[in-house]
Simulated assay, not measured.
Amino acid sequence: MWCIMDSKNVETDEKPKSEVSESNLKGMGSIRENHILGDSNMSASTKDMLFRADQIDLKSLDVHLEKHLSRAWSRNVDTNGPKEPWEIDLAKLEIKNLIARGTYGTVYRGTYDDLDVAVKLLDWGEDDMATSTELASLRASFRQEVAVWHHLDHPNVTRFVGASMGTSNLRIPEKTSSDGPTDKLPSKACCVVVEYISGGTLKGLLYKNRRRKLPYKVVIQLAMDLARGLSYLHSKKIVHRDVKAENMLLDTHRNLKIADFGVARVEAQNPRDMTGETGTLGYMAPEVLQGKPYNRKCDVYSFGVCLWETYCCDLPYPFLSFSEVSSAVVRHNLRPEIPRCCPSSLVNIMRKCWDANPDKRPEMDEVVKLLEAIDTSKGGGMIPEDQATGCFCFGQIRGP
């Protein structure tokens, strides 16, 4: 049995002789003698190559095909200049030091065109572990969502600088931290570049003030920043899906900016297209914990928990396990305990946001209006621990 292969339909980056060796074509004689894959002066009559189909080493050809796909993976970044409006030139990106390692990637600090930036490397699977179909799906999804982020522009959302579909030209110092040398970059990876925010996270601020607490005016200012940022994202049909204090960054003026779009996605037209447990324990809405369809209202629930956390400078459910929290939130309507010194206007917002029924939760633009109407001139913050004597919650004492 013989097989005819048209060389015009075979895409390759190298000369054919490196892709198919003599050992692949047993019984065919010398390649040069047969003039099948010979020199560059091959005549037009030999462009149709004939092989014994039963003697082709298919396993070896699979290896060559995989190598070809790996080269094609990063081909976009190997060409001169960006191909998409959001695609950056990696030659202009300089990595300085490691900031953090997270669930969805590794974050570095660097510069891009003299701008301080944070660079997040996202690994899309170990080499040879993802099929070409899976990789194509990941690339398509990444392109769609990055194209949306590229157009975001709001003072309470971390500014998106650009992204790259590959990392073949990325320059990372041999040692970027005291932890040791940099890990080898995976060949199937991408990077996202955003503005660098130097003031730390909201979680860090709350931890520093866990004893003395935050003034009521600061609590409301931070809450309004977060609410306005989420309202903007929702207006663009984006659901963050992991709203928590750790994902909120602060600049030097303590302005809050929403960050970490690692699990964010464009809101589906059909809510049933958005399912699965996505988020962080303690902030996850009941419908997410149950694996039910959800929409942007899961962010509203998480905001309610963040609002409580900002007021109390404490963690929700610190002594409960994942299973205990999941069960209690869904079956027993467990929510963080609100101190009695908390002003009723703020209590009202918390309870509206973490209502078990998503349809009863307010939209984030409504939350913004409720927060703007709060009077902070008379204080109302959480009572500092060194001032809390006796059962203060039943008294008329108000925090700063």
Rank of each mutant, 00 (worst) to 15 (best):
A130H: 06
K213A: 03
H154A: 12
T106A: 04
R139P: 01
S137R: 12
H151I: 15
V192E: 02
W124I: 04
V194C: 13
K96Q: 08
T158D: 10
D183V: 13
D179M: 09
F160Q: 07
L205V: 04
C190H: 15
Q144Y: 10
R211Q: 06
S141K: 15
E195Q: 13
G162C: 10
H151E: 15
M129P: 01
Y216D: 01
S137T: 12
N97E: 11
P155L: 09
D114I: 02
M224S: 15
L115M: 01
S177R: 06
E126K: 07
P215M: 00
V219E: 03
K175G: 10
E134A: 00
D114W: 01
E145H: 09
H154Q: 14
E126A: 06
G162W: 09
L205W: 00
H150Y: 12
I197Q: 11
F160R: 10
S235C: 12
K213L: 00
R139G: 08
S187P: 05
I197K: 14
A130E: 12
A189C: 14
H234R: 09
Y104V: 03
L222A: 10
L122F: 10
W124G: 00
D179T: 14
T103I: 11
K217R: 09
A100W: 10
L135T: 05
P215V: 00
G229Y: 15
V161S: 06
E145I: 06
A223D: 05
K184P: 03
T111Q: 11
R211T: 08
N156L: 13
K120M: 04
P173H: 06
L152W: 10
Y196K: 13
G110K: 00
E174G: 13
D116V: 04
R210A: 11
K203P: 00
H151P: 07
D123G: 13
D123E: 13
V194I: 08
V146G: 07
V157C: 14
D123T: 12
L205T: 02
N169R: 11
D128M: 08
N209E: 02
H154F: 13
C191S: 12
K188C: 09
Y232I: 01
S168M: 02
T201P: 02
K236R: 14
Y112H: 05
H234Q: 14
H234K: 03
G199I: 08
N97Q: 08
V218F: 05
M165H: 12
L226M: 15
L115N: 05
V161Y: 07
D128V: 03
Y104K: 02
G229T: 05
V157E: 13
D183A: 12
L138T: 11
Q144I: 04
T158A: 13
T133E: 15
K96D: 05
L152R: 12
T133Q: 13
G125F: 06
G204Y: 00
L233F: 09
L98R: 14
A118K: 06
